[in-house]
Design a binder for these strands. Structure first.
Lengths: 356, 356
DNA sequence: TTGTAGGCGTTATCAT
DNA sequence: ATGATAACGCCTACAA
C-alpha cells in the first residue's frame, strides 16, 4: 500500500482554493499570472493564501510543467576575481526575474565540467552559461541534450554551441604588446600563472606580436601552473630578471601579477616605467590608483555577465536574439607604468627590430 | 481531459526497469543506494541505464521524497573579495557530496534577504547558510519554517537561529588598535566604507580602544556608504588628512582601503610607517607582498566556509555537532607598515594619553 | 474567465 | 532483497 495520512498542517493549492471558494486550478493560475484571474477572486485567493501561509512547491511545479526556472552557470574559479565581476553581471540581470541561478565551479577541469554538466541536466535547466570554448565532445553533447539556450562566455571561437559572448584574448594581448613596442620597449617579458586556456591564448598573442616585430626570445617567457597572486607576480619577475636581465618591459597575464611586479620593482629600486614598463590584464580597480598608475587591458566583464544573462532570457521568452555571437572587445588603458621616454616611430622601425 | 501521449524517447525508471527485467522500485533503490540491490541485478540495471541514457528526474524525486539536496547560501555581496574566500570554502566542502548549492546575493539589504529566504523556502532546502546576525524577525521566522539546519556565518552574536561560526569584529578591531597603541601611535584614524553591520562593529571596537586609551577624537573617523575600493582608500585618507593633519596611524576597515592609503602616501611622499602607520583588515593575499608589507587582521574566511558547510552536512546526516557556535578567532599580522620606531611601554603610559 | 480530468516520474509504506 | 500500490502537489490539455 501507499501512503495514507495527509499531514494536517499541510497547505497546498487545494487548501487555498477551498478557503477562497474557487477551484485549485484558478489558484494555480493566480500564482503564475494574476492577470488571468478576475479581480474579485484575485483578492479572495490572495488573502486565503496569506492566511494559510501557503508556499508553492517548486518540485511539484517542475514535475508537472516539465521545466524549471533554473539557470545553470559554470565557472572555472571562485578565487579569480575576474569571475566575481562576471557573476555580478549575471546576478544583476536575473535580479527580480523568476529565474534562479545554480552556480558551479569546474576548477579549470574539463572532467569536473562534464560531471557538473551532467548534474545540471538532471535539473532540466531553463538556460545555461558556461565558461570558454574548450568543452569536451562529451560535454558539448550533454549541454545540447539539455535542450535549452546556452551562452559560452569569456572568449570567442568557431563553432559555438548556441550563443557566445566574449572577446579575443589573442588580439587583446597582441594590442597590449603593440602598445609596449610603440613605447620603444624591445625586451618585453611575459609572465603568466595558472596557464588556463585563456592565458594560453594571451601568450599566443604575445608570441605573435613579438615574432612579427622580430623580437621573440623564449627566455622572456616565464610561466607557472600555480594560480595567480600578487606574491607570484614578484616571484615570476625575479625569475625573469635572472633569465633576461636586460628586460625593459613586463606584460602580466593578470593584474595581480602586475601589482606583484610593481612591488618587487620597489623592493629592488627599479624605476617604473623608466627602467621597466609594466602592463597588466583585466584592468582591476586598483590598477588606476597604484603609484605609478598601471597600464592594463580593460575587459568588460560585468557587461559580459549582464548580456549573457539577457541573451538567455530573451531566448527563453521568445524574443529573437539578433547577435548570437557578441564580441565585447577590450581596450588598452595606457597609464604611467608604460610611458617610456623613448617612444618610437610606427611599424616600419618596430618591425625591423633595429636597436635604437 | 488530461495529457495523453507519452513521448517515445523518454527514459524513466520504468524503461530502465523493463530493460533490466526488474521492478521500477529496484532501479530507484539502485540509484540511491546500490548496496541494497543484489549484485546480479546491480549489473543489469547499470547497463540498462547506460544503454538508455537514463537521467534521474530531480523534480520527481523531490516531490516524492518531500526533500531536496539543495543548500541555500545567502551572502551580501559578490564584489567584496572577502566572500569569495568563504564561498570557496563552502564549495570545496560540498564538492563531491550529493548536495548542490543555491547561491543568492542580498546586496546588504535585509528586505532582499527576506525575499530570497522566501524563495529558498519554496525549494525545501536541506540546509541554509546565511551571513551575519542581523536578520529581521520575519527573516528569522522564514528560516525557521524551512525546518533544516542553518548556519549563520561571518560573526558571532547572542541568540543563534541554529548554528553559528565566525568571530568578533569588535574584538578583532580592538586588537588591531591596541597593536597600534603599543607601537606608540596616538592619533589613529579609522577609515570605513560601505558601513555594513560588520564594519560598524569594527568601528565599535575602534571606539572602545581609543576611548579606553583616552585618545578618542571623532575627527579621526572617516566613513562612507560607498563600497570599499582602493581608490576610495585614497579619498578617505585625503579627507582624514584635512580633518586631522596630525594623524600618525590609519586603521582601514578593509584591506583594499589600506592599499589605497599606501598608494596615497606614496603620492604625497609620506613615509610608511615612519610618518604614518597603516593597518588593514582581512589580510588579503597582497598585504604581505606590498612595500612596505602591510599589517592586517587575518580572518579565517576559507575555513569559515568549509566548517559551516561541514556543520550543515553533519547535522543533516545525523552526526552530532558538538560545537554549535564556533569562534574562529583572528590574528593581528604585524608587518612593516605598523612598526613605529618609538614603541611605548604597556598600558599605564598609553592610557594616560601623554604626549611623548 | 473558469473548471474537469488525468498524468508528470519518483519514492514511502507495507508486505512478501 | 524485492515488489505492489498509492501518493507527492501541481500543471497541461481540453471543454464550457
Amino acid at each position: 500500500m501507499g501512503r495514507k495520512h495527509i499531514k494536517p498542517g499541510k497547505v497546498r493549492l487545494t487548501e487555498v482554493a477551498a478557503l477562497a471558494g474557487v477551484s485549485p486550478i484558478t489558484v494555480s493560475r493566480f500564482f503564475r499570472n494574476p492577470d488571468t484571474v478576475s479581480p474579485g477572486r484575485r483578492l479572495r485567493i490572495e488573502s486565503a493564501a496569506k492566511d494559510l501561509g501557503y508556499v508553492p512547491n517548486l518540485a511539484a511545479r517542475a514535475l508537472a510543467s516539465q521545466r524549471t526556472e533554473v539557470i545553470g552557470v559554470l565557472i572555472p574559479s571562485l578565487t579569480n576575481n575576474v569571475f566575481s565581476d562576471v557573476l555580478r553581471g549575471i546576478y544583476d540581470a536575473f535580479e527580480g526575474s523568476r529565474y534562479s541561478i545554480q552556480l558551479a565551479n569546474t576548477r579549470y577541469s574539463v572532467l569536473q565540467e562534464e560531471r557538473l554538466l551532467r548534474l545540471f541536466l538532471m535539473q532540466k535547466p531553463a538556460g545555461m552559461i558556461v565558461t570558454g570554448v574548450d568543452q569536451t565532445a562529451e560535454g558539448r553533447a550533454i549541454v545540447q541534450a539539455a535542450d535549452c539556450p546556452v551562452v559560452q562566455i569569456m572568449e570567442l571561437g568557431p563553432d559555438p554551441i548556441d550563443m557566445m559572448i566574449g572577446f579575443s584574448h589573442v588580439d587583446a594581448c597582441f594590442a597590449a604588446i603593440s602598445h609596449l613596442l610603440a613605447q620603444g620597449c624591445r625586451r618585453i617579458g611575459f609572465l603568466g600563472a595558472r596557464m588556463d586556456p585563456r592565458v594560453q591564448r594571451r601568450l599566443q598573442g604575445y608570441q605573435n606580436a613579438m615574432k612579427s616585430a622580430g623580437l621573440f626570445d623564449p627566455r622572456l617567457i616565464v610561466t607557472t601552473a600555480v594560480p595567480t597572486s600578487t606574491t607570484m607576480g614578484g616571484s615570476l619577475f625575479s625569475d625573469l630578471m635572472l633569465r633576461a636581465p636586460d628586460v625593459d618591459a613586463v606584460f602580466c597575464a593578470n593584474d595581480d601579477l602586475a601589482l606583484g611586479v610593481l612591488f618587487e620593482c620597489q623592493r629592488r629600486h627599479i624605476a617604473v616605467p623608466e627602467q621597466i614598463a609594466i602592463v597588466g590584464f583585466n584592468d582591476m580597480e586598483f590598477m588606476a590608483s597604484a603609484v605609478p598608475t598601471l597600464t592594463s587591458v580593460r575587459t568588460n566583464r560585468y557587461e559580459m555577465g549582464l548580456r549573457a544573462a539577457t541573451m538567455i532570457m530573451d531566448e527563453i521568452e521568445g524574443r529573437p536574439v539578433a547577435e548570437r555571437v557578441v564580441d565585447l572587445g577590450f581596450e588598452v588603458m595606457e597609464r604611467q607604468s608604460s610611458q617610456q621616454r623613448h617612444a618610437v616611430a610606427p611599424a616600419a622601425d618596430r618591425v625591423s627590430g633595429t636597436k635604437w
